[in-house]
């Protein structure tokens, strides 16, 4: 299968196989008018299988979302058909409006215009705590 290379835009590479569509939705890419390709299950020497998202426009993507959902992805910035910047995305130290506090005692439960801020308090165990009430974020 062949997908055209892009001239100016972004390639999100090394996405864990199966997470491409999730990232597409979380990044709000459905709102973009440009050409976007989600390529699933690409053979990878390093990962076995991986997903790739190619965005044919110079837009900004939220690297906090990328780092939180799939640390280890690579963001390649393409200009004039060349990779001009390669960013390795790791777990972000701070998340703003990516995840939401579920503690009913937290100030964010009543003042919903506040930014939802979480800090990474334990990198090894991937623990994020609400900046306001320090409640641990639980995925489920």
């Amino acid at each position: 299968m062949h997908v055209d290379s892009i001239n100016n835009g972004i390639v999100i590479d090394h996405i864990t196989a199966g997470k491409g569509l999730q990232l597409y939705n979380l990044l709000g890419l459905e709102l973009q008018d440009c050409t976007i390709a989600i390529i699933k299950n690409v053979a990878s020497r390093k990962m076995g299988r991986k997903d790739i998202i190619k965005i044919d426009a110079d837009i900004s993507v939220n690297t906090d979302i990328l780092g939180y959902v799939d640390p280890g992805v690579t963001v390649n910035i393409i200009k004039g058909g060349e990779i001009v910047e390669k960013k390795n995305i790791s777990l972000p130290n701070k998340l703003v409006n990516v995840i939401f506090c579920k503690n009913p005692r937290c100030i964010t439960s009543t003042e919903q215009e506040l930014s939802q801020i979480f800090n990474l308090t334990n990198e090894k165990n991937r623990v994020y705590r609400c900046a306001y009430c320090e409640a641990k974020f639980e995925e489920k």
Partner: peptide, 9 residues
């Protein structure tokens, strides 16, 4: 304040 984090805000 009864809500946790209100003084930080």
């Amino acid at each position: 304040h009864p809500k946790e984090g209100a003084p930080l805000v």
